[in-house]
Design a protein around this nucleic acid. Structure first.
Length: 1162
RNA sequence: GCUCAGAUGGUGGAACUGGUAGACACGCAGGACUUAAAAUCCUGUUCCCGUAAACGGAGUGCGGGUUCGAUUCCCGCUCUGAGUACCA
């Protein structure tokens, strides 16, 4: 029978599934090998032809390793939490779990038909409770640990508490928040539980802290740095802004050095390692404190500082009297002529003198207006402002002015730099602009036009380092600074802690509840904390994450009532603490602050009337009451004023519910429409005044201290089994993918994330294949979590992925058609030409004709001639051919184009409605399409679906063709054109086993020398190629081998049987079929033995030496390989043809490389 | 700007440690079979000069260098792609 790929492939896929052929053994005497693919997010679009590229490569490798006698773990699963399913849920109301389930089914079907050798018994899904139970469990371990720098590893929080109890914060070398306080053991013991918890939170490896985050309003969530590209969200491309919020973070910075060092020990692509190094961004330098010159720190400075309700961080006040900078060139300290601090620097207000205040305020206002993008675009213009204050250079006592400028970033180093205009180009430009001195500090420096950052030469103008060279000078300066107690050598990292919370629904719930505003872990026995059902997948009306909608989303304390904590810290007094529901307090505080900072125009106007007690009563705006944020409220009178049309306002019912609750808490609600306020604010103001006068004092009995009303209506007070609200954020997408490779080792364990034995057997991933887009996300976080788990002795390897390969991106190859228009004027087609489009029947010109029309080489008359010639006598009549011709290009579905030739029949059927009565002007009887390489996407009609190709050619052909396309790591455009060649090859291979009548026929004769040579060549070649991941070249070699054996008319059983094993990892279905036809037991091929290469079969006794003259090959001569160079030289020189080339002259020199070449110099 | 990767026929690409540049495949051209088309098979196919062949010349982004010999090593440059960016 001819090669019936469809039947064969279905048969074997069924067989593998039924027999669990690829199930890895948990224990084995064989050596282990772990081949892992980056598991996919199951998107609704299904797989396109680019997705399986890496999977095919890893599958070939896994199958090859099985043949080489390894116990191979080759699993697959789904990274099934994520945004698209949730966005879809928001639009349609369909639960993300249902969408995800459906998408996974599609993925599974598509993966199965490619014939992968995955061990599906170990499948994982990050969104399955069995799985995310352990993601939550690992989160809990992170919460329960801190980083001890002395031990250089994570240690239990109980150990930290023990340290505090014995010696307070003294002698502790920990990675922690900057605000961590110093205290003695006695002070520690004097703290109450909440205060202690608050302090411990500053050390935990996952912690809650107010931090500047990337907020994406369109997605309604924060994003990690690696999820933001150029100021836009990676998913969806929405704008991202900076914002302060209470957020969960992961203290990945604790591992910065280990993450950096580990890169040297793993076999990863260099560019990828480089990206991680840049991301970690280690710079070695020094920190220096510049004492503030005692002249005249502004007395109003402090009063003007709005952030009064914040505790000033240590060292951030004038008592210490110094500004700390970080520099990588401490040797240039004598060249410092000014200091620059970030506009957001905490000392700005205090340093600003009254005389400079206006200028500084204006500058700050100006920078605030600039978006991140503007700031980047503006990089070249110099801007800044003088504060009026000075610091003292500690090494030469010079008075140095302090400026603010936005080229200094608040988030890096200390947010302050010492400016050395002679050595740094930005400082140089700044100095020129503000006319500040520029002092050369090295005798080799040339600073006439620009800064010279050289380290060469000897120091000048630099007191005690004059005459020294760079290394000596740096050491001397650091030593001096240390002596003075004003500086020390310091290492800085660019990497920030990773933001961990997401204000979204479809993710792992954080196993945390809040008590007295502090996070507490739930009990381990309550894991998994299941994702609750919600009515909608949107934020609540008060702006809380979707989980805020879940009913009863609260933790029931397992035993007796927890001790009632102290009331809020004093600096919160006078705020809305007393009216807000304490459970939501922290969150509400953030949202209300955000709202205050972004008032709507109507709010702004109304506020002008209500502020400063103009009504006779004090009003607060964006004030939290219970779970809501009121637009304006008078607490004395209990009057809430609400404006409609604020961005988070939803429906009438919601408003009514809100009014009811507010009434319940003793508030009257007054509502105004935005337009009312905008059109007649005076009238609104009068109404407010009237109402205030009519109202009695508010009844405050609802809010007494921390005695609270539960958000769900139940009464918490003092009862056993009291309820505390759960965290409302969920975990980010990278949580589940940061440890999944361990779950595959022991996927069904319900006692541990994976058993000790399983981890000790499988250890780590030997080969990991995936895209480089995960360089600073998944791959960095995974290394971080792995190191953490290693510190806890839960895993055995420091690095999770020994070898990693990035498969290249498959780009799309779009095809274009060219529509011809005629109209009275020429040039491009604009939108206004719609009428022309509609009234003219579609006429398309083949590619090169279209080019000629575009270039004016083919005019209307020529076109008419072509139409008449190709379409008939009067065909041209329906076009306005007397007018000027021009063309418009549009995408055409690549699936109806083959080798750039358009299938006109299919086109007419497909585009019947869009282009009725379409006509085509052909070249050489074909319609040739234009082409271009673009991203593969639906909108470009260039998506090639693997299903179609499998239907047409089969999975084996697809697998081999994807490999044949080019080197695995290289990005390349998809082009289906060559696939026929691979298909022909497989047919030819099938043919070897069959006679003319397609009957299976093999001979049992002894193989000939030539047959064995071909066979062993390919045995060796595939071995070499697979080991170095050069899959494309082995496909070529297979073709060569089959071509040779076809020429030899080989149907020798021994040769063919080995050949089947060699090809089996590339084209498993056809090989399984032939393997059984050869008389082997079905299904044994996957665990057969790879044939042993025998070099004896490749030994030649002659070699066709290339004979070259002056390096140019002239001819070949067959010479016995037993001849030594001397004899070869004599033999070659004796040859008459050689003599002819030499013109009978004696060559100056003859080079003979045995088995390679003969070269003569004349 | 910085860092990294890359540049070879009409196309995808091969040439592994410096040793016959263009393997393998697509495409194209010609031919066989066929009433015809498809499919299949055969031959040719880097470019230039030459009627064809023999033969000759050029040739791996550009310019130089090392070498008997360079796609491969070194120096300088151009272009393309990726990452990153006032990081002190």
């Amino acid at each position: 029978m001819d090669y019936q790929f469809k039947d064969i492939e279905q048969k074997w896929q069924q067989f593998w599934a039924d027999n669990q052929t690829f199930k890895a053994e948990d224990k084995s005497t064989k050596p282990k090998y772990y081949v892992l693919d980056m598991f996919p997010y199951p998107s609704g679009a299904g797989l396109h032809v680019g997705h399986p590229l890496g999977y095919i490569a890893s599958d070939i490798f896994a199958r090859y390793k099985r043949l080489k006698g390894f116990n191979v773990l080759h699993p697959m699963g789904y990274d099934s939490f994520g945004l698209p399913a949730e966005q879809y849920a928001i639009q349609t109301g369909q639960h993300p779990a249902i969408t995800t389930e459906a998408n996974i089914a599609t993925y599974r079907r598509q993966l199965d038909q490619i014939g992968f050798s995955f061990d599906w018994s170990r499948e994982v899904r990050t969104s399955s409770p069995d799985y995310y139970k352990w993601t939550q469990w690992i989160f809990m371990q992170l919460f329960n640990n801190w980083y001890n720098k002395d031990a250089d590893k994570a240690e239990s929080i109980t150990k930290l508490v023990a340290h505090f109890e014995v010696s307070g914060s003294a002698g502790l070398n920990a990675v922690c928040d900057e605000e961590a306080a110093s205290f003695t053991a006695a002070e520690w013991k004097a703290k109450n539980n909440n205060e202690q918890q608050e302090e411990l939170l500053k050390y935990r490896l996952t912690y809650l802290r107010e931090s500047t985050v990337n907020w994406c309003p369109a997605l309604g969530t924060v994003l990690a740095n690696d999820e933001v590209k150029d100021g836009f969200s990676e998913r969806g491309g929405y704008p991202v802004e900076q914002k302060k919020m209470m957020q969960w973070s992961m203290r990945i910075t604790a591992y910065a050095e280990r993450l950096l060092q580990g890169l040297d020990k793993i076999d990863w692509p260099e560019p990828l390692k480089e990206m991680q190094r840049n991301w970690i961004g280690k710079s070695i330098g020094a920190s220096v404190k510049f004492p503030i010159s005692p002249s005249q720190p502004s007395p109003e400075g402090r009063a003007l500082n709005e952030a009064d309700n914040k505790v000033s961080p240590t060292g951030g006040d004038l008592e210490g009297g110094a500004i700390e900078v970080f520099t990588t060139r401490v040797d240039t300290i004598f060249g410092v002529t000014f200091l620059v601090i970030a506009p957001e620097h905490e000392l700005v207000a205090e340093l600003t003198t009254p005389a400079q205040k206006a200028e500084i305020d204006a500058y700050i206002a100006q920078t605030k207006k600039k978006s991140e993008l503007d700031r980047m675009a503006d990089a070249k213009t110099v801007s800044g402002a003088f504060t009026g204050s000075y610091v003292i250079n500690p090494l030469n006592d010079e008075k140095v002015p302090i400026y603010i400028a936005d080229y200094v970033l608040a988030g890096y180093g200390t947010g302050a730099v010492m400016a050395v205009p002679s050595g740094d180009q930005r400082d140089f430009l700044f100095a020129k602009h503000f006319d500040l001195p520029i002092i050369p500090i090295l005798d080799t420096q040339n600073i006439t036009d620009e800064a010279d950052p050289t380290k060469e030469g000897k120091y000048i103008n630099s007191l005690f380092i004059n005459g020294l060279v760079y290394k000596e000078a740096t050491a001397a300066v650091v030593a001096k600074l240390e002596e003075l107690g004003l500086g020390k050598a310091k290492v800085n990292f660019r990497m920030r802690d990773a933001i961990f919370g997401r204000q979204r629904y479809w993710g792992e719930p954080v196993p945390v509840y809040f008590k007295d505003g502090l996070p507490h872990l739930i009990s381990e026995s309550d894991l998994p904390l299941l994702l609750p059902e919600v009515d909608k997948y949107l934020p609540t009306e008060s702006g809380e994450p979707p989980l805020g909608r879940a009913e009863g989303w609260a933790y029931t304390a397992p035993s007796k009532s927890p001790p009632v904590g102290e009331t809020s810290p004093s600096h919160e007094a006078g705020n809305y603490r007393e009216t807000a529901d304490p459970v939501y307090y922290e969150q509400l505080k953030d949202y209300s602050r955000e709202n205050r900072n972004q008032p709507t125009p109507a709010e702004d106007i109304l506020w002008q009337f209500l502020r400063k007690e103009q009504t006779g009563f004090k009003f607060r705006r964006q004030h939290a009451i219970d779970q809501y944020i009121a637009d304006f409220v008078s607490l004395e009178k209990g009057l809430v004023i609400e404006l409609d049309g604020h961005h988070h306002r939803l429906s009438k019912e919601a408003d009514d519910a809100r009014t009811e609750i507010l009434n319940h808490f003793g508030f009257e609600v007054l509502r105004f429409a935005n337009d009312e306020v905008l059109q007649n604010p005076q009238k609104v103001f009068e109404k407010v005044k009237e109402k205030l006068e009519a109202l009695p004092e508010r009844d405050k009995t609802h809010f007494i201290g921390d005695q609270k009303v539960s958000p769900t209506g139940g009464d918490l007070e003092g009862a056993d089994g009291a309820e505390y609200a759960y965290e409302l954020s969920t975990m980010p997408g990278w949580a589940g993918s940061s440890w999944y490779w361990y779950r595959y080792m022991d996927a069904h364990n319900n006692k541990e994330f994976a058993s000790k034995e399983a981890i000790e057997y499988w250890k780590d991933v030997d080969l990991y294949i995936g895209g480089s887009e995960h360089a600073t996300g998944h791959l960095l976080y995974s290394r971080f979590w792995n190191k953490f788990l290693k510190d806890l002795d839960l895993v055995v390897e420091e690095e999770p992925f020994k070898k990693l390969i990035n498969q290249g991106m498959i780009q799309g190859r779009s095809n274009f058609i060219y529509r011809v228009f005629f109209r009275p004027w020429g040039g491009e087609l604009f939108e206004d030409a719609d009428s022309v489009k509609k009234t003219t029947p579609p006429l398309f010109a083949s590619f090169s004709l279209a080019q000629k029309i575009k270039n004016g080489e083919l005019l209307s008359d020529d076109i008419k001639e072509l139409i008449t010639e190709q379409l008939g006598e009067h065909a041209a009549d329906k076009y306005n051919i007397s007018q000027v011709a021009f063309v418009q290009r549009s995408h055409v579905d690549v699936n109806i184009v083959q080798n750039d030739i358009l299938d006109i029949q299919q086109f007419k059927a497909k585009y019947l409605r869009e282009y009725p009565e379409a006509e085509f002007i052909l070249e050489k009887d074909n319609y040739i399409c234009g082409h271009e390489v673009e991203k593969m996407s639906k909108s470009k009609f260039n998506v090639v679906n693997p299903d179609d190709l499998i239907t047409r050619y089969g999975a084996d052909t697809l697998r081999m063709y994807e490999m044949f396309l080019g080197p695995l790591e290289q990005s390349k455009p998809w082009n289906t054109n060559g696939i026929e060649g691979v298909f022909k090859f497989l047919r030819k291979f099938w043919r070897l086993f069959h006679n003319e009548a397609w009957a299976f026929t093999v001979s049992d004769a002894e193989p000939t020398k030539a047959e064995l040579k071909s066979l062993h060549k390919i045995i060796r070649k595939v071995e070499e190629d697979v080991e170095r991941f050069s899959f494309n070249t082995s496909v070529s070699s297979f073709m060569i081998a089959i071509n040779e054996l076809t020429d030899l008319k080989c149907n020798n059983r021994k040769v063919l049987q080995d050949l089947v094993v060699v090809l089996a990892s590339y084209a498993p279905h056809i090989c399984e079929e032939l393997w059984t036809l050869l008389g082997n037991q079905a299904g044994t091929l996957s665990y057969a033995t790879y044939p042993k290469f025998n070099p004896a079969y490749l030994v030649e006794d002659e070699f066709a030496y290339p004979i070259s003259i002056n390096g140019k090959t002239k001819m070949n001569l067959n010479i016995s390989l037993s001849l030594e160079p001397k004899d070869i030289e004599a033999f070659v020189l004796a040859n008459t043809d050689v003599q002819r080339y030499l013109d009978n002259k004696q060559p100056k020199k003859v080079i003979v490389v045995k088995g390679r070449i003969v070269n003569m110099v004349i």
